[in-house]
Nucleic acid binder design. Structure first.
Lengths: 221, 221
DNA sequence: AATGATCTTCAGGTTGGCTTTAGGTGATCT
DNA sequence: AGATCACCTAAAGCCAACCTGAAGATCATT
């Protein structure tokens, strides 16, 4: 699991206790580190304090959800603050716990979260008869499954989020590659080419179109 | 939200439960009523059973989409029937749930759908029967798609933003070309010519008119 | 360490859109 | 009528953008 908590004492306490229960605990001490660790690794569950330096818990939570990460999240809310439980759940958390909390309750709730195995699969995106399942990194056209590499999938996903619209090469770079990728932008063309070979050519379709000088567009027709 | 479900017992159950969660629930008992209520009111989300009297769920869904209504739709599919999830998604649903379903799962999915706020409504400019879609760099007259180059599109876009008004050649230059374009202004005429060949000539219309000494005007008639 | 999969770089080939050119048309003025 | 001006448009050259096969680099797995 990942614990994002800035109060050292509390973090150590929880980590120590949960480690004894068989959890492998990573700790991040501020929101931005937490977000980064959560995106880099696949945790079974994430415990997220609301009040965090650099990026608060709500922001971390909604950014993860936006990115298609549906790892179960438990939020730790300060009871008396301006933050409240409703906001936690609205931001995509699966459960919340008001501070101060009992260790036993935390443990019980965490076990429940892990057992539930996260929320149900997030909705898929459909563009014509092409169905993209962000959670499963799967896609299919009609009834035919299509095997994609992670990178190919990321590019397709970025395009499918805005069907019919032109997505520029730099937008694709920003979404499918690291924030500041300084390599050859030609790599986008390489992946577009690979995608066409998989999602269009075998079906005799041309849904992934080049808009010269502007970007690429994924069409339903 | 709008719930379209013919089984009275299930409808009442869901309505009661969701009302307690803060949803305001309208219920329709067959497809045609559901379609009518959906078009008359703006719901945040629509839950749609597949097997419905008078008009099945798929039909309701695709009719709504055809009418330009992009309210998030969750389909309730019978697991064992001839209907399946793929068909639901292909018909424009945003999510589906197989019967029998757990109430908690339904609630979680509905929250996710509402939070996503539905799909973006496409913004496009219409001048007569000419439709310009800036996001997709596409345009069509009536039902006929027209292929434009980025430059052609930029010029048309500049004209279409002020339908019926005269746009001067220098304004077109400023909007469609770089700030300090020092080439031959004749290029505007070249592009006007190309546009006429694409958006007017094939349709026997003359909507792109020259106003000698002043500029060009795009008319609805 | 070896293997296979995936990611990235590279380079040659191709295309398509932008721009210029130049001759033509039609309006306007003297 | 003739001259002038603004505009039209077909054609052609050029260049950046794009495509793609292949090879090298990286990563994960055995």
């Amino acid at each position: 699991m990942l614990l994002v908590e800035d109060e050292e004492r509390l973090a150590d306490l929880v980590k120590g206790g949960l480690a004894g229960e068989g959890f492998a605990v990573d700790v991040a001490h501020d929101g931005r580190d937490g977000l980064w660790m959560a995106t880099e690794n696949a945790y079974d569950v994430i415990v997220l304090d609301v009040m965090l330096p650099r990026l608060n818990g709500y922001a971390v939570c909604s950014k993860l959800r936006e990115a298609g990460d549906w790892t179960p999240i438990m939020m730790l809310t300060a009871k008396d603050g301006i933050y409240d439980e409703a906001e936690a759940l609205d931001n995509g958390a699966d459960d919340y716990l008001a501070k101060p909390f009992s260790y036993v309750v935390l443990l019980a709730r965490l076990r429940a979260l892990v057992r539930r195995g996260g929320r149900e699969r997030p909705v898929s995106i459909t563009v014509g008869d092409l169905v993209i399942d962000p959670a499963g990194l799967r896609c299919r056209r009609g009834e035919v499954g299509i095997g994609l590499t992670p990178k190919e999938f990321a590019v397709l996903h970025a395009l499918a989020r805005r069907p019919g619209e032109v997505v520029s090469k730099s937008e694709l770079l920003a979404q499918a590659w690291d924030f500041s990728y300084d390599g050859d932008p030609n790599i986008v063309e390489v992946y577009i080419s690979a995608l066409r070979r998989k999602i269009d050519l075998p079906f005799g379709k041309t849904t992934l179109m080049t808009v010269r000088g502007a970007g690429y567009r994924l069409e339903a027709a």
